[in-house]
Every structure is written in structure tokens, then in C-alpha cells.
């Protein structure tokens, strides 16, 4: 016998939670306990009094499992609301990356040129290195990092996806 896997599709979820100790562990633990994937997870406080946080989770699952993930998240006591932005329709996804590149001569010039094309900003420079700040969707950042690989990529720090629905209504 061999074990087969289900087909999965990618979804971006917005989870509004009470900002209490252990909430991140609770959510991450739910995913590992029930065997769900986490591709990216970001969390930050979103109210002035720091009482509420927004967690953006990118996950892959079959449609049936996806429904379970949302229901399981919604069942957690500190969770206010779970929105499947992917299922809901039009939304904006952004990620920020800091990309360190080392090089001299032509490589250095090429890196700057590419950064310009990708609207990456230089946030640190030495005579032999740059740190670029680039924002965009996952695909754009993947592509930028790949190109920098050819001109002297040293390391990358990525925030993971944050996302919000288009239009005037909240998620």
C-alpha cells in the first residue's frame, strides 16, 4: 500500500482575534494538530488600544478541508471573525521583502537597474552591497529574488502576506 495525497488550492484568510497571550500558539497549534498547511502567517495589532490583532494566513487545502479550517478557526474562543479573502473575490495581497545583494562593477549596476524595474528602493548601501526594499504580490517578490540571485544575492527577509478586500466594505 502507498499513501495518496489530496489536491490542494491556495487560500488567503484574514482572522481577527483578541490580542491575548498564547493566541498565536493556539492558531498555529490548531493547524499542526489537524494536519493543515501554513504557507505564510503574519500577525500584528490593529487597534489603538492594542486589544485586537489581525492574522493573515496563507494555506493550501482541498475545498472540503478549507471549509473545516475556517470552521475550526471560527470556533476558537478569542477569534472574532474569519474571512476567506480568496473565496470572497477581489482582494489585494502585498508582501514586503528586504533583499541583500553584494557585488561590484557590472553586477552592481545591473542590480540597480533591475531594482528600478521592480520599484525596489535602496534602504542601505555600501560600496559593494545594497539592501533593497520591495513590496508586491508573492509572484513579483519571488521573481525579484530570483533575478537578484544572478547578480549577487546574499540573503532575504520576507514579511509574509498581508491582504485586504477591495471595495468599501470590511472583510
Amino acid at each position: 500500500m502507498h499513501i495518496s495525497q489530496e489536491k490542494a488550492e491556495r487560500h488567503t484568510l484574514a482572522v481577527i482575534v483578541d490580542n491575548e497571550p498564547g493566541i498565536l500558539a493556539r492558531i498555529a497549534g490548531l493547524f499542526t494538530a489537524r494536519g493543515y498547511n501554513i504557507e505564510s502567517l503574519t500577525v500584528s495589532e490593529i487597534t489603538a488600544d492594542k486589544s485586537v490583532s489581525r492574522i493573515t494566513i496563507v494555506t493550501s487545502a482541498s475545498p472540503a478541508t478549507m471549509e473545516q479550517i475556517i470552521a475550526q478557526l471560527d470556533r476558537l474562543v478569542p477569534v472574532h471573525k474569519v474571512t476567506d479573502l480568496t473565496a470572497q473575490g477581489a482582494h489585494v495581497e502585498r508582501e514586503l521583502a528586504l533583499v541583500k545583494v553584494r557585488g561590484t562593477g557590472d553586477h552592481r549596476i545591473e542590480a540597480l537597474r533591475l531594482a528600478d524595474v521592480y520599484r525596489a528602493r535602496v534602504v542601505d548601501a555600501t560600496t559593494s552591497s545594497f539592501v533593497f526594499e520591495v513590496t508586491g504580490g508573492i509572484d513579483k517578490i519571488d521573481k525579484f529574488v530570483e533575478l537578484m540571485g544572478e547578480v549577487g544575492l546574499i540573503e532575504v527577509a520576507r514579511t509574509g502576506i498581508v491582504a485586504i478586500a477591495r471595495g468599501k466594505e470590511p472583510a
Binding site: T32, R34, Y36, Q68
Partner: peptide
């Protein structure tokens, strides 16, 4: 069984958790 993990199957507990 792996397919039942996360479904509250009979005698399931999140042992690793």
C-alpha cells in the same frame, strides 16, 4: 490514519501537540 487526522476520529488526540 493520516486521512483522519484533524477529524476528531475515534481515539484521536493531538499527541505531537
Amino acid at each position: 490514519p493520516t486521512a483522519l487526522i484533524g477529524t476528531d476520529a475515534f481515539q484521536e488526540a493531538d499527541t505531537v501537540g
